[in-house]
Amino acid sequence: MKTSGRLDGLLFVLFFIIGLIACIWYLIRHDPGFLPLASEHGGFIDNLFVVTLIITGIVFILTHVLLVFFTFRYKGNGNGEKAFWYPDNKKLEIIWTIVPAVIIVALIVWGQVGWAKIFHTNPPDDAFVVEIVGEQFAWNIRYPGEDGEFGRTNPELITRTNPIGLDRTDPAAEDDIVVLNELRVPLDHPVLLKLRSKDVIHSVFLPNFRVKMDAVPGMTTTFSFKPTVEGEFDLLCAELCGLGHYRMRGYVVVQPMEELEVWLSEQREMN
């Protein structure tokens, strides 16, 4: 059995080095990185990502250096010469079972600290509450109005002009404001999103805020966060919902509470 292979070993080395350089070049040249951050908890997610990237990056390079070096270095001549007899090594195997386990548990624990802050902490009572009701392919955004309460809805009341089936006989519904695709939230103030869907599963994705949560028909999901940057951002759908999924676009506007209240009263007049 004869096999050539010097070239293959070399190609592995070259491919690895060129690939690594290309990656670094791309990172520097284009800075693909994260979208500008605009929420409080997002910083934690980004940090966790970066630390994970560093750890996995080291492991990636280390293992690949070994893989590539071994393929380059240990070419056999195919004449039946014997390799080094090395069937196992208990100590080594225990080490490389325990070390990854420890690193990984550390990452989990750290991750769970953040997870608990995001999900296991009740939003403050004065949180700005917005309801988002997804439908193919638009977002109905409802603000509770001055009473801070959402009125009853009933799917039987849904018409073209009453997209979420708001029951106007409910006193709490009187001052509810429903707009299409325009999510406005106050700056530096906790926000509680309540998500529902009229038809299929959607997912509210606010990439700048590191927010993503499915809007599931038949139930209400929530996500709370605090916007920290003023400006206009994107709202996307992240769960396949039909042919218009790719442009189920909403607009997120973060503005100071006073400006937001002015806008809300304008909307109330139009509603």
């Binding site: 096999t3 293992t63 071994f70 070419k75 080094f84 090395y86 079972t97 386990a101 990984i104």
Partner: peptide, 27 residues
Amino acid sequence: TILIAVPSAVKVFNWLATLWRGKLHFT
């Protein structure tokens, strides 16, 4: 989920150890 990384890592390290000082035939 993340625990799966442990046996997976063991597999990778064992493959590398198998390659180490082998007489590689590049078929």
